[in-house]
Every structure is written in C-alpha cells, then in structure tokens.
Design a protein around this nucleic acid. Structure first.
Lengths: 311, 311
DNA sequence: CCATTTTATTGACTCAGTCAACTAAATGAT
DNA sequence: ATCATTTAGTTGACTGAGTCAATAAAATGG
C-alpha cells in the first residue's frame, strides 16, 4: 500500500452524492430566512458578528468566502441601519473591527431562534440514538474536512468504563488480523483476558488505563496481580491513527509508576517478537528480555517473549 | 426516558455549526463552476438529467427545490441550445419527459469531470483510513436525514469474523448498562463467554450467527454444546435500531434448526425475567420455563430463568 | 525608501432567481 | 356527466444579490 492510494470511485461518488444531498438540505433550511429581511449571506454575516469578537471586514471575506466589495457595501448598509458599529483599529488605520449594536443583536435574535428551532425540529424527528449518530457523524465530517486544530489536550487517560472491554477487544483483534494476519483466536484471547480482568478485579492491586482522544478510544493497558511480588502488564495497544503522540510510552510509564507505588518487585509482560514498536517502548522503559519460546498461536508461527522490569 | 427526549443544546449547536461549515464547503466546491458557462442551479439540473431517465419538469422543481417558472425558462434555453429534448407524455398531455441530447451530455461531461476531480483532490488530502471514516460519516448523515429507502435485503446472517467478538461484547454491555443499569461485570461476562466460545469452538457441534444490516452488526446468537444431548443458546441480542424486523425470532429459529439437525435432544438457555422482549421470542419458539432463581449480579438483584426446548 | 501587498471602497453591471397571473389538462366529488 | 379543484407548465415583469475592475490608503519587507 502506498502512502496515499487513490480514493476508490465509490468513495468519490458517495461524497458527491452527499454534496448534492446537502446542497438541497441547506436550501431547505435556508427557506426559513425567506420571511426575514435578510438574505442568506447577510444572515451568515450577522451570525459571525454575533458569535465572534473583534472581527474585521477581511475576516468575513476570508471565512465566509465573499466578495470584498459586497461585504463593504453590506456593512455600510448595516451601519446605516444602525445594526453594526465600527471601531477603527489603532494598530492599522485601514482596518476597523465590527460589532453588532444592541439593535443588531435584536435583529439577529429571531433569525437565530428560527434556525435553532428548525434544527431542533429536524433532530426531533429522529430517535435519540439516531440523533447521537447524526451528531457524531457530522462532527467527524467537520473534523476531517475542516482545518482541524490539533486538540489542546492530545489525549486523556481514564479508567475502564462500560463498552471499553468490547471496543478494546475488537480493535486489537482487527489490528493484528490486518497487520499480521492473526485469526479470530487472538481476539478471543483478548476477550477472555479482559473478561477475567474485570471479574477478578482487585482495585488495590490492579488497574486499567484507557487513552481517549477526542472522545475515541485510542489505546489501553492493564496491570494485573500475578503474585504479591509480581505484577503483569497486559494488552498494551495504541491505535495506528494515534501513534507518534507518545501514548504507548505514557501507558507503560503509568503501569510502572503504579507497580512501584503498590510495592511490587517485578513488572513482567508477555509479547511477540514481531511487535517491534511495542518492544522499543519496553526497552526504553528499562524492561529486559528474560525468556523466548516458539509457539503456534492465532494461526501463525510466532516467537513469544517474556520481558521483566525489576522495580 | 420518554420516546423522544428533546435534543440537547450541544447537539443542536453541533448540527448548526456543521450546517455553516458545509455551506462554506459547498461554496468552495462550486467555485469550480465559475469558469463554466453554467450556473450552480443549471449544473444541478444537468446532473439530474444526466443521471435519471424519464424526468419531467416538475420532478426537477420538487427534487431540487426550484421555482417552476425558473425551471421552465431554463429548460427552454437548454432546448434552444440543443442540450435537451422533450418528449410529450402519452398519459398526460401536460407533461413532457426531458432528456439530454448528445450535445447536452458533451456539455455536461467536463462539469462532471471537474466535480469528480475536485472531490478526488479533497479525498487525496486525507489518509486512507480517514477517507473511509469520512465516507462512512457522510453516508450516516445522508441515511439519517434523507428519506432512507428501506434496504432491499433487510438483513443477512453470517458466521463470526474478526472484530465481531469485541463488537458484540461492547454493544451488549452498553445496551444493558443503558436499559437496566447493569455494571461492567456483565460486559466482562459476555467477553469471557465469547472468548471461551471461540477457544473451544467445535464446528460440528457449535455455531454462531451474526445479523448484519447495511454493513452494521445488528444482532447475534451462539449455540454451544453442553453435553452430547444438550445444546445451549447464548447471548441472543438485537440492536434497538433493528428491532421489529423479526431478527430475534429468526436467530432463535436458526439455533433450533441447527440443534435439531445435529441431533441434540434439548436446547436450553439462561436469561433474566426483566428481559421481556427476549422472553416473548423464546415462548413463541416453544421454550418452557423450567427453573427460576434469584441472584445478585451486574450490580442488580435479578431473577434468572432457565428455559428449555425439547427437540 | 520604494516596490509590493493588504485592506477597504466605489462605480457599473448582469443575470440568477422570484412572484404573480394565466392556460391547459387531469382529477375527483357529487 | 359536470363542474370545482388540483396539477403541470408557461410567460411577463422585476429586483437585488453578487461580480468585476479600478482606485485609494495604509502597511510590509527587502
């Protein structure tokens, strides 16, 4: 696979179909503006003015993709009608920041309310579960096509919650199936391990960390008690899409800190030699390879490795 | 929870933000039309004519949300330029179906190509995994907001594949957590059962069915061998969004057929009394309640039930 | 300090889209 | 059958949203 395959034709057609569909959708929503004294573009400008401070004419031109002349005239009209005020910039005499006056806000309020009500009506037609799916899908499209600002917090760590076990199982199963051709018995092993983890969970001695990035699970790791002196790190994984953020190292680090704090003497883990990225993380963290054995699992011939860290 | 909660404010705001964003996005894409001799609306009309047969003027008015007078004039202009032909309808003398001529197709081709290339360029900027996410999200939005045509095949049944174990675990865990407040130990139990199912899987005596609807898993059931004479039905579930299609009954039916074919004498299952929808399916299928016992599991006081069907 | 770029404005257009009035055919209620 | 109502499409008369090019003034950058 090259870095960028050309997108398939069905993909392109689906996106185009969506664009046509949404063109119409937006047309329907904007019909609500017909009775208002503002055009669609005017309403867009009002919205921007109402929701952002310190805007300058050229911001509107750029962000809404409008003609500078048109914006100039439009603002002049708004100013004459007392809807906006301009305040000359001190730093740059050409620019003037534009703000809605009270009258402007009042003129915008019903527009805003209409739009709000329309969207609510749209959502009301859907079952709650579908509302969530819709919103999530829209957010995905928005994030992918918009110039996504890197999230301020690249990821968070949190404990296990309902749904995580299955999700982690699924993702690990699919990931190793895709990358190494492992069969479904690996996914089954993950399911068993996680099932047992929760069933026999001892909060004092064991812990789980789920890495979440923008609401999506992107990594996880588990520490279980093998004996009073030995803790085992299990099921470290990081989503391919979230690699390079140091999540893997961070997760391992949390495990080590936890194991130390609990008074374990050894932190052990089992992995396979082909998992290079993981091995590097373990080495960096100070783990030493203590044992290797061949085995046939998950439909492949593999070399299992045991790594230990003396705490 | 009422049937339709009012959508949360953040939902509404997200949808509105998406609408603003996509208004701009469509504006960007349509800039490609500027050099062409057609307006956006003309291009939309041409697209419809190129992709659908037997169209009538009023179809365009309805489907594209246009003014009838405008369409009338637009078609007249196209006809004068030799881009479209009209053929009077036999059934209704007022109507005439409209079709692109060869010249019309030729005029449309570059537009179509441009749009295609633009979308390809858009997708090319994304990693393949993100392309898939985008397309899937768009399809979700389209399906939810468009008047979705009922799929021709409402669902299909298929055997387990990689990723299903985790998905089924997650969905069951989340479903019962949401509907009955069960804690994560239920999800863990599902994970263990499924892990063991795959680990000890005996194809001759056991089987799984996954119900899939439009590419999404919407239900599942498993049959395991308890003894040479007794098979156990486990983990029946149907997604709320796919209920009412008879998937649950169908899954149970498959289990019964399978158990009979394999020569089992009894099909047994364990459930809880609060799961009313499931109970109805079991009763319909001929199962008899043979045992009940109170137990405390999943953070709740429950009444477990064993149901048997003599084959 | 001078060429270039950015920000904003203005004049001059135009054509995409609207609105209302109207014809002709089809439908449907009685 | 028939007559009121609805549907399909047409035409005339507008208008105003948006475009394009020229210009001014300020800021930037080598």
């Amino acid at each position: 696979m090259t870095i960028h395959d050309h997108p398939g034709k069905e993909c392109i057609d689906t996106v185009r179909a969506f664009n046509r569909f949404y063109t119409r959708q937006i047309g329907l929503l904007d019909e609500g503006l017909l009775k208002s004294p503002f055009s669609l573009t005017e309403a867009r400008v009002l919205y921007e003015l109402a929701n952002r401070d310190g805007l300058v004419a050229s911001d509107l031109v750029r962000d809404l993709g409008l003609d500078p002349g048109y914006v100039s005239r439009l603002l002049k009209k708004f100013e004459e009608r007392g809807l906006v005020e301009r305040e000359a910039s001190e730093a740059d005499a050409r620019r003037a920041s534009i703000a809605l006056t009270l009258a402007g806000s009042q003129a915008f309020a019903p527009l805003n309310q209409d739009s709000h009500d329309q969207v609510r009506a749209l959502l009301d037609r859907l079952a709650p579960a579908d509302q969530e799916r819709l919103v999530k899908a829209m957010r995905t499209v928005h994030d992918l096509l918009g110039d996504r600002p890197e999230p301020k917090v690249p990821y968070i760590l949190r404990p296990l919650q309902v749904g995580d076990i299955g999700w982690v199982t699924r993702r690990q199963g699919m990931l190793y199936a895709q990358e190494y051709g492992w069969d479904e018995t690996f996914e089954a092993l993950v399911a068993e391990i996680l099932g047992e983890f929760v069933k026999n969970f001892v909060p004092q001695w064991e812990r789980s960390w789920i890495a979440e990035r923008e609401g999506e699970v992107v990594g996880s790791v588990f520490v279980v008690r093998k004996s009073p002196k030995v803790a085992k790190l299990r099921l470290l994984y990081v989503e391919p899409s979230a690699r390079g953020l140091g999540i893997g190292a961070r997760l391992v680090d949390e495990c080590i800190t936890f194991a130390r704090a609990k008074g374990y003497r050894t932190l052990t883990l089992w992995t396979n030699d082909i998992l290079g990225a993981a091995r590097r993380i373990y080495q960096e963290a100070g783990f030493r390879l203590v044992d290797e054995e061949r085995h046939h699992s998950f439909g492949k011939d593999l070399v299992g490795q045991t790594w230990n860290l003396e705490l």
